[in-house]
Design a protein around this nucleic acid. Structure first.
Length: 136
DNA sequence: GCCAACGTTGGC
DNA sequence: GCCAACGTTGGC
């Protein structure tokens, strides 16, 4: 199983919206590197859900429910894809970006190294560290 | 509000 | 194919 992190501005689409809808097609990604990451997602993969801009914290864990399909919000024939995500569990407490940056074991986290990339892989040990921070 | 990072576009 | 200009994202 692989692990990932997706970003969303909570003003545009929040964890609360996601829970209310009990899942969503993760559409709107228009960057090839991020798209490649969407294409690599498999059902059952766990995905950290990060609120960017106003909150800057990891707030929950989603699970990949269906692997990639053409993004219905993109032009037909375009290369963009979406996966279907469902809520898995909220974090016990949100983990702020500052806490991620302060943790040496997360120094190589994609979110930190490439802050603009909206879909990034997460190593299993990094995933565990984030969960531990939310419980600590 | 500013600015760094970075992707895209288009002229040459 | 190079690179300057420009737009967007997102942290500070």
């Amino acid at each position: 199983m692989n692990h990932w992190l997706v970003k969303s501005e909570p003003e545009a689409y929040s964890w609360a919206d996601f829970v209310r809808e009990a899942g969503t097609d993760w559409t709107g990604v228009r960057n090839y590197q991020a798209r490649n990451n969407l294409q690599a997602m498999q059902p059952g993969d766990l995905v950290l859900f990060y609120h960017s801009v106003s909150e800057k914290a990891v707030v929950g864990v989603a699970i990949v429910h269906a692997h990639h399909a053409p993004d219905a919000t993109a032009e037909p024939g375009s290369p963009w894809v979406a996966v279907h995500l469902r809520p898995h569990a909220p974090l016990a407490r949100p983990v702020p970006l500052a806490a991620l940056k302060a943790e040496p074991r997360l120094a190589r986290l994609g979110l930190i190294r490439q802050s603009r990339l909206s879909v990034t892989p997460v190593q299993p040990d990094e995933f565990d560290v984030v969960l531990a921070l939310s419980e600590g």
